[in-house]
């Protein structure tokens, strides 16, 4: 078995905007531009970035919920962008997703049991196995048989998110894409779900792609972190390195901006100025140059490539080296 579970090569995803048929110029939202990233078997890769940076689109492309505009995604050595619908459906068993809002991702008209049976039915599991599988997995996520006959509105947010995780794990997938799984939850419940995810991963040998805007959650769970900005991967490295020795100015700004307990009056620091530019018409050169504190002429003209700056630490910045030294 190869050690790399997912390999994304030069992935591009454009969403066309309506209109433009008069002028002949179709405008597109450049959600992902040439993103290459790999996920090793058994690792947790955290993807962090602000809204609109393309982190969710990347997750959805990896599951092939979105058809990429160009580029390749290899899952376990197989190029899933070249698969037929039928082959893809079989592959989907190995990759599952947990969404942000559990109340919205579970049907309000179905009992939990009905919602859990569906994936087993779809993927052709023999009927006599269904209940044993469901009961085992419910036990794993810390819920009991009494929850099966309930409807989603009868359960709390934390319980619902446990159900979502259970549903994703029913098919015994290799990869779990977690798209902001704790963002809708309160801190005390968030801690329960983070602990659960951490436990499951070690016990079941799962691989996670963990997507979040919350650096502290990402930092807690991930082995490696990828930082995205405006459709680009700007930094990638081991969690300790990215957190303690960030090389990209955006990563630094992001770390600075997170309000942390015990850091009083950090609001007195000058925060990063300006807004994220539009992905319809992104800046030339380095996409971060409009807000970057160390930008120079070169940054406006030439786009920096994602390069190795330290051991296992990649960064897309012309001046990343200078800054760290």
């Amino acid at each position: 078995m190869p050690n790399t579970l997912i390999q994304v090569e030069n992935l591009v995803k454009h969403f066309p905007l309506p209109g433009g048929w008069l002028t002949g110029q179709r405008r597109v939202v450049q959600a992902l531009e040439n993103v290459s990233i790999d996920i090793q078997r058994g690792e947790v890769l955290g993807l962090v970035g602000e809204s609109g940076c393309g982190k969710t689109t990347l997750g959805r492309c990896i599951l092939h919920l979105e058809q990429p505009t160009s580029g390749h995604i290899h899952f376990d050595g197989v190029d899933i962008t070249a698969l037929s619908k039928r082959e893809l459906r079989a592959k989907r068993r190995d990759m599952q997703i947990v969404f942000q809002n559990p109340l919205a991702s579970l049907s309000p008209r179905r009992t939990i049991k009905q919602s859990l049976i569906e994936p087993l039915q779809t993927h052709g599991f023999p009927q006599d196995e269904w209940m044993t599988r469901i009961n085992t997995i419910m036990g794993r996520v810390g819920l009991g048989a009494q929850h099966l006959s309930r409807y989603p509105h009868e359960l709390s947010g934390g319980q619902l998110q446990r159900i979502s995780v259970a549903r994703a794990l029913l098919l015994a997938p290799q990869l779990l894409v977690l798209d902001e799984p704790t963002s809708a939850l309160d801190v005390s419940i968030q801690a329960q779900i983070i602990n659960l995810l951490d436990e499951l991963r070690h016990d079941m040998g799962l691989t996670y792609l963990f997507i979040s805007h919350d650096l502290s959650v990402i930092e807690h769970l991930s082995d490696r972190i990828g930082v995205m900005y405006l459709g680009k991967l700007v930094e990638l490295g081991k969690t300790e390195d990215v957190i303690n020795r960030p090389t990209h100015p955006y990563t630094k700004a992001l770390l600075q901006a997170v309000p942390r307990v015990g850091e009083q009056g950090k609001a007195s620091h000058e925060p990063l100025e300006g807004n994220v530019p539009s992905p319809i018409n992104p800046p030339t050169g380095c996409r971060f140059h409009t807000r970057c504190p160390i930008a120079e002429l070169l940054c406006r003209e030439t786009e920096p490539l994602l390069e190795v700056k330290a051991t296992d630490q990649w960064s897309a910045c012309h001046f990343a080296d200078k800054e760290t030294v």
Partner: peptide
């Protein structure tokens, strides 16, 4: 105390977070 213990912060990496049980 429970709220603070439940926060994921750098020093607690790799350890179990202390969740407040119940609702």
């Amino acid at each position: 105390q429970g709220l603070l213990a439940a926060l994921p912060i750098s020093s607690k990496r790799g350890t179990q977070l202390q969740a407040i049980e119940g609702t």
